[in-house]
Design a protein around this nucleic acid. Structure first.
Lengths: 251, 251
DNA sequence: AAAGAAGAACGAGGAGAAACGTGCATGCTG
DNA sequence: CAGCATGCACGTTTCTCCTCGTTCTTCTTT
């Protein structure tokens, strides 16, 4: 069996079962678990699946999924979120993206922080209800259920009135060549518009994002003030980012 | 069963049942209660749920708030919400106000309803996540934490682009003389702006609202197409409303 | 209504098993 | 022979379950 063939098989299985268990597939295909793991690792690096302990899950949540919530790489996201929250100075204005990692940032905010947070994610808004000292500004527009954020022309327009100090950007992929990528074209446009409205853009990049690439480009890496990640500084991708002059902020 | 998958399962259960009992899930999945507790602990740490003795509840404080407030007149609100939901025709565009009764309307929507819902309440948006067939449009603006809705000049302006068939209006008081009232001036202005953008405005009036009056006027009763209430038609206030020519729709 | 006892749930810590990534040797292909 | 995919061995990390002592809830007793 050829490598590419085996990877196709894995992706087909992910589509069908919404999960893959390395051990089972190895037995089924008559190859070692090592090979399966290697394949899954490479597929994950390409953004085609999410690697988890024991196997892999589809890259994008299932159709009828629970909004933006996904229970993968939970503590990695937490570390990144904590580092991002530490960037927020009292009194500053911050644009907060949608997505699980951004949601984790709301959790990591110090109690009593006085700041203004602008977001296009109703989920983030709901999470900020617990921070009475934070002023919240919602960007409206058509709701993209896939990721539970407001997108589209109206949302982009609404964003034009904002002047923020920092934009905390969530993406699906951070790749030395492909730059910052995400799975939806409209979302990418929205993120781009938000990046223009902030002095500095920082990328929230939990480990599974590092080295991955999705279908739609958001921004080149040169456009951001830093990539916040808890991936090891020894990581191949992280080294390439640093070599290319992209500031990497360890979480 | 993969770890990440199990966590996803827990989140799905939280969405479906609004709670999770550690012991039950452990039995259902065939793992130890320890493992379930550990998962819940981690999810809670990531802000994806709220840990309580015996299990977990959904994360959003807004929802938790809803949980505490809904104890008031829960049946009444549900009946009113059901009657309001029945007013929504497939294919129509509806503006849905904020507040607990409006939230109850989202729960009363028939599954698979194809309609467009416009709202300025992130909480309502979050609740609509479970209705994939409904198109959602969010009105942005400054967030009023008191009632968790977007208000202010920007929100009023954003509302100007909407043309809806029905506006389901929530108020704190429905009084024969004082008309429709609410507790906040900006909220009142927002509600007024929304009423102008819909062909018909219906008032969501659970029993405790009938005969009550708050500090700020929203609209005169003559401006609405109907008051939806489950208060008895023998009720003094209801009789006066009817006598004044206000259509009262029994829930 | 307050106090106390019984039971359930809890977090911490440890042992064992499973999965992991890496380095290296093997074998196939061009 | 060069290049690459593969499988094995190894040390490491992660997960699960179990035990133990603590905390919380509830029921009973006063």
């Amino acid at each position: 069996m050829l490598v590419a063939q085996r990877k196709d098989f894995l992706l087909a299985r992910l589509d069908r079962d919404r999960r893959v268990v390395a051990k089972d597939v190895a037995a089924e295909l008559g190859v070692s678990e090592d090979s399966v793991r290697r394949d899954l690792r490479e597929l994950a690096a390409a953004g085609l699946c999410q690697r988890v302990y024991g196997g892999a899950l589809p890259a994008s949540p299932a159709v009828a999924d629970y909004g933006t919530r996904r229970a993968v790489e939970v503590d990695s996201k937490q570390r990144v979120a904590a580092a991002a929250a530490a960037l927020i100075r009292p009194g500053s204005t911050v644009i907060l993206d949608g997505g699980t990692t951004a949601l984790a940032v709301t959790r990591a905010l110090p109690a009593g922080l006085e700041a203004t947070i602008v977001t296009h994610s109703p989920t983030v808004v709901a999470a900020l209800a617990g921070h009475p000292s934070v002023e919240v500004y919602v960007l409206g527009g058509r709701l993209f259920r896939h990721s539970m954020v407001a997108c589209g022309a109206a949302a982009v327009e609404a964003a034009q009135v904002v002047h923020a100090d920092v934009f905390l950007l969530g993406v699906t992929g951070v790749h030395p060549d492909a730059g910052l990528t995400t799975g939806d074209a409209d979302e990418a446009a929205m993120k781009r518009a938000l990046a223009q409205r902030a002095a500095d853009t920082y990328v929230l990049a939990s480990t599974e994002k590092i080295g991955a690439a999705s279908r739609f480009a958001v921004l080149p890496l040169s456009a951001v003030a830093g990539v916040i990640t808890d991936a090891s500084s020894q990581d191949e991708t992280v080294r390439r980012l640093s070599a290319d002059g992209v500031p990497v902020l360890p979480a």
